[in-house]
Each structure stands twice: as structure tokens, then as C-alpha cells.
Nucleic acid binder design. Structure first.
Lengths: 202, 202, 202, 202
DNA sequence: AATGAATGAGGCTTCATTCAT
DNA sequence: GATGAATGAAGCCTCATTCAT
């Protein structure tokens, strides 16, 4: 009988190793040999679990964002108040970036770079950053709409506000990545949300 | 009698060609041959003006941000009112992104990705995105401070506000890059600035 | 009590599977994994019966030609008349090519290619196409000699005639492999043999 | 000014080197490194002249057969008599095989093997052995038809005869490749043609 | 000064073979 | 005996850089 291996677990292990290397060196500069070394396996073994380097990237990408989405939707179920929902949305998003097992903030910028560059290419179907932002904006605007319906928020342009809100958090994260000692991302984010809520509360 | 060549002009020409290709294809996917073709010269000639591909990237990076800084400082001289200064700051920044001779929004994300990744490396001295953001925040916060001093603005945390403002513009630009038909970047930016000014005006 | 396996039978099974895949895809393009799959066993198991891929090829090669030789010799026993013997020789040869359980005409060309290339190498002892042709020519020329002795055939150069006869059948088979709808190999072969017999009969 | 190179000549040089290695080791077993070594250039240089290994194979293939066809058609112009034409056809064909600058009999079998295997694949358009045989048969049958029309030959099945004739020469060449000392290919070929002509002359 | 032909280090991927179970 | 997970040697190809002209 052959060695029994939990293929799923091992694949996840390799993926984790790959993402660590991606985060450290960037996707393009990451060599299959690096991933193999990081995963403690041979180069060839990677191909037992992934078809290609691009395949790894794709799975890493999907993993990050689907994990995030799952976490977001899960967390949203726990509360009912729109203001609380917004707070949760930001909190969970930040947790994904900051408190992850390993540091994958760096990888996100790479994903951005790759996603932006490939916005017209065929990879678009795989790494469709545009769709991800669309979904993310929808998540925000639905909460804002709900708040308006419930009479909590003023009658604001929820689309623009969602875009701006997401933009601000993205941008803050970027600056924070560059120098984590400069400010407490969570606190500044809270300030941002509070200012926003102050501005839109009836 | 040797051929007389304006070395500086030719170098600038090559750099411009390089940035066009960078913008179109991304830094990593850009080959020296592409740059040579775009510049209408031979591959070897590039090395008469640049030491390496990385050297070109470095100069491109510096060129973008020093040009932007020059443009910003120049424009700021023309007005006195802090609110006008903020408006100008946004306006010129956007112009750099949107209305440039050639589209270099894509290149920016590459710069981000490269800058973020190299935050700990020795290239840091060359591609020091952290410093660039620091300078940029300073530019904003000085205007905000000026407004506070002049009694126009409330007594706000100018550091955080600068960071948030820049963040929002960065993030909006990113979303806009991904789908330019989604919104008018200039208009949404105006909305953002107006909301901000409304919130901080005395 | 260890599992009892008829090693010979299983080896033959694997060989058969290998030859099917060889015939379908060519020797070089055939992977050990393909053979294992076709044989319904694990990759590792192949190595319980064969030392290497080359070993399989060698056994396949020998199997084809020794089977053919056995079949030829067996069939020759049933008749006495030289003309009938020639007819049988052709008939059985064609049967080996055409009516085999599985199509192994393709594999033959591979054998040719490999045999020709290795005519000077040490594999020569194993895949000695030259010897095979020698034996085959001998088979023909002995029948022709017998015919001459019996006064049925003219006093011809039996060596050359054997070579030419075999050559013609090989070549026809090749053309037929390339386009089986072009002609009926068996009929054209009959025509060839008839013409020959007409030419050499006393 | 850069080094001036006769690209066509160099490409031909590389192709020649490649064919020598193909002939020696077989197409599949030939590595780009072997070709580079044989051509006295670096591995990378090959790619300045050929797109891929397959491209080299294709050009080699076409070169062999188009050269042969050119030589055949050229030679046929010099004579008028159908019998002479057949003699010339055989003579030039053999010259291509035997007296070539370098030994490319081996490569032919590889081409056969490759052509036969790929008879259903997309390479078919490139290495269409079937078409080559068709053309070759046409060449023969037109001469035979001409002979019939001129009243020199009996009213024979020219298609089958062409196929058989080509087959016999192919097959003889194969046996001769395996052991060149066994017989004089040219003499046996003459014998074959003479027998044939004897059989079909009115 | 300018060039582009030449290169080889280095990357991705394949696959025959091994070996722990 | 049987297996298939693991492997690394080896192959194809790319491309930044060099250098002879």
C-alpha cells in the first residue's frame, strides 16, 4: 500500500508556503524552487498538487479573497444594526490583513498590481479584481441602503460613498504597510468610520 | 569629428519610451528589446545611457514622483487660500495620473508593488515609497495646519486627516483604473474633498 | 500466506498494455503512467516486472518479432508447395500487421526507427533489426531455393529477390498505414506476389 | 555598427548541424544543446534563427523533401523517354539518400516514424508524409501513363505499380541502411527496375 | 556612438524511477 | 506484492547583458 497522504492538507500547506514566499519576494520574483524549499519538498512535488506557477497564484488569490468574503458574510450575520454592520465589515477586513497567520499584506499589493495590469487579459476571469471591488462595494452600499431605509442615514449617494470608504481603507492599509509604526491602522480606521457616520447620520 | 548627441535628451527619450512600455505591459513583463523598439534604437544603445533594467526602473520611478512633486509645488505657489491649495493639490495629482501624455496609471501600481515589497531591502534608498508618502502627507498637513492657524479649519488631527485623504485618493484611483467607466474620478474626488472641507470648516 | 500471482501472466498483461499504448502514441511519447493506467495497475508495480521503460520496449520488440516468427514457422509446416509457402508467408505477415488484436502497425515504424538508429550501438544485440531482416530474407530465399531445386522456379538470384520482396511488402505497409483507404493491402500484396510468381515460374 | 551576419547562411548552417545530429541520435533524443554544440554556437543562438525545436524539425523535414522534389523535377526535364525518366527518378532519389553531403538516411526513418505517428495530429499539415507519397506516386504514375499512351508499356494498373515500385525502393533502402555491405543498393535497384520494365514493356 | 548577434545563467516543467508504507 | 507520493535530473526556452564591428 502506498504512503497515505491527506492531499488536501498538503496542498494547503504548499499554498501557505507559496503565499509566504509571494509575500516576501513578490509573485513574479518567486521561483518554484523557493516555494519548494519553503514547503520543505522537492520542486517536482509541487506539480503533484498544482498545474503551474500561475495555478498556484490563482489559488492563492482566490484563497485570500474567498476566505475574506466568507469571514465577512459570517460576521455580518451576527448583527442587525447597519452602523454595527459597517463596524464589523471594517473590523473583519482589517483582521484579515493584520492578524493573519502570516503576513499577507505584501501579497495583496502584488495581487493589485497583477489584477490591474491584467484587466484586459484573459487572466481577468481568474483574477478579476474589478469584480471583487464590485462585490465589495455592493456589500457596503447594501448596508448603507438598509440604513437609509431604516431612517438611520441621510439620503446619500451610497455608490460613491462605498467606493470612497473602500478606497480610504485600501489606501490607509497601503501607507500602514510601508511603515507600521507610523499609526495604529485600527484606530485610524475607527476615526475614519466615526467621521463618516457622523456625517451621514440623520 | 564624433557625432554630437545630446546625451541628456536622448536619455530622457529612452526613459519616456521605457515608461510607456512599463505602463502598457508592466515592469516585469517589459523586455529591454521592447524598450529599444519603442525608443527606436538598438538594444545595445540602451546600455550607453542606463546601467541596467533596474536602473531604468529606478529613474522612471524617480522621474514620476519628482515631476509630480515639482508640479505640485509649482502649482501651490499660484494660490494662497488653504482651501484652494487643497483643491489644487488634488487637481494636479489627478492630472498627473489621468491626463499625462501617456497613460501611466498602470505603472503606479507597479511602483506601489515594488515599493511595498522593497520596504526592507537596500533598494529602499532608491525606491522609498515610504518617504514619498511621508512628503506627501507633509504637503497636506502643512496646508491643513495653515488653515487651522488662519482660523479657517477646526482644530483637527492633521496627520491622520492627511493620511486618510491621500488614502482615499489612492484607493479611488485604483478602483477607477480597474473600470474607468464606473465613475468620473475627478467628480468623485471633488465630492470627497467637498465633504471633507464641510466637515473641517469652522 | 503471500498472495499468489502468476508473474508470467501479469508480465504479459503489462506488456500487452504497453504495446497498445506504444501503438497509439509512439514509444517516446508513452509515459510509464500511461502504461500503468492501461494495465490497470500502479506505476510502481511495473517495476516489479520490468527493470525500466527501455526494458519494456525491448521485450515488446522481441515479442512482436518472435511471435511473428513463431506464427510464420508454424504456418509453413502446414504446406509443402513453395508457391503456397510464399503465399502463406505473406498472408501470415500481413495478418500480424493488420488483424492483430490491437493495431500495432504504428509501433512497427517506431521499431524500424529505433532499430535503424541503433544499428551501431550496443543495443544492437537486443534490437537487432538487421538480424531480423537477415532471418526473414533467409526464410524467403530458402523457399525460393527449394522451388528452384524442385524445378518450379527459374534459376534466379534468390538473395536479391528475397530482399526486394520483403522491401516491397514493408514499403506497401508503410504507405497503407498512412492512408488505409487508399488501397486494400492484402489485394495489392496478392498482385505483387502473383506478378513475381509469373516472372519466376519456369 | 553591429556584426554583419548572413542570417540565411547561418540558419542553413544550424539546420545542417541539426540534421546531422538528428541523423545520428534521432529527432526525439536530440537536445538543443547537442545542436548548439554541433553548430559551434550557444544554445540561445539557435533561437535567433528558429522558434523552437519543432520548428527546426519542420524545416529539416521540408528541406529534405523539397530539395529532393526540386532535384527530381529538374532531372526529369533532361530526358523524354518514359523508361529513361523512370531510371532518372530512381537514380536521383538514390543519390539524395546515398550521396548526400552527410548521411541522412537515418533521419528519413525518423521522419517516417514521426509522420506515421502524427498522421491524425495537427502536425499533419507540416509533416504530411501521406501527401509526399501521393505526390511521389503521381510522379511515377504519370510517367507510366505517358509510356502507355506512347505505346511503350502494356495497359497496366499504374497506381498500384507506382505504389509497389516506391515501396520496393523504400524497403530496399531500409535494409541497405541496416547493413550497407550486404548489397549495392544502386545495383539491386537497377535489377528491380529492369525486371519491372521487362514485365511491363509491350 | 550605435548596434544587434551571441550568449548562458536561470526559470518552468516533465517524468522515469525510488521507496516508505 | 502493490502502490503512488516524492523526487531531481534533464530538457526547452527566455532575456538581460556583452562585445565585436
Amino acid at each position: 500500500m502506498p504512503k497515505i497522504v491527506d492531499k488536501k492538507a498538503k496542498k494547503a500547506e504548499i499554498l501557505k508556503a507559496a503565499m509566504e514566499v509571494f509575500a516576501r519576494n513578490g509573485v513574479v520574483k518567486t521561483k518554484m524552487a523557493n516555494i519548494a524549499l519553503a514547503a520543505g519538498i522537492g520542486k517536482g512535488t509541487i506539480y503533484e498538487y498544482f498545474r503551474s506557477k500561475e495555478d498556484i497564484f490563482e489559488e492563492a488569490f482566490n484563497s485570500v479573497f474567498s476566505n475574506m468574503e466568507t469571514a465577512l458574510l459570517e460576521a455580518l450575520k451576527t448583527v442587525d444594526d447597519p452602523e454595527q454592520k459597517l463596524k464589523i465589515l471594517i473590523d473583519v477586513s482589517l483582521t484579515c490583513f493584520i492578524d493573519s497567520d502570516y503576513d499577507f499584506t505584501g501579497i495583496i499589493v502584488d495581487f493589485w498590481a497583477e489584477g490591474v495590469r491584467n484587466k484586459d487579459a484573459e487572466i481577468l476571469k481568474i483574477i478579476d479584481l474589478n469584480k471583487i471591488y464590485k462585490d465589495y462595494r455592493k456589500l457596503f452600499s447594501e448596508i448603507l441602503d438598509e440604513g437609509i431605509q431604516k431612517g438611520i442615514f441621510k439620503n446619500i449617494d451610497t455608490f460613491s460613498l462605498s467606493a470612497i470608504l473602500i478606497a480610504a481603507f485600501d489606501g490607509l492599509t497601503l501607507q500602514w504597510i510601508l511603515n507600521r509604526h507610523l499609526f495604529d491602522l485600527r484606530k485610524v480606521s475607527d476615526v475614519l468610520l466615526d467621521s463618516l457616520l457622523n456625517g451621514i447620520r440623520k
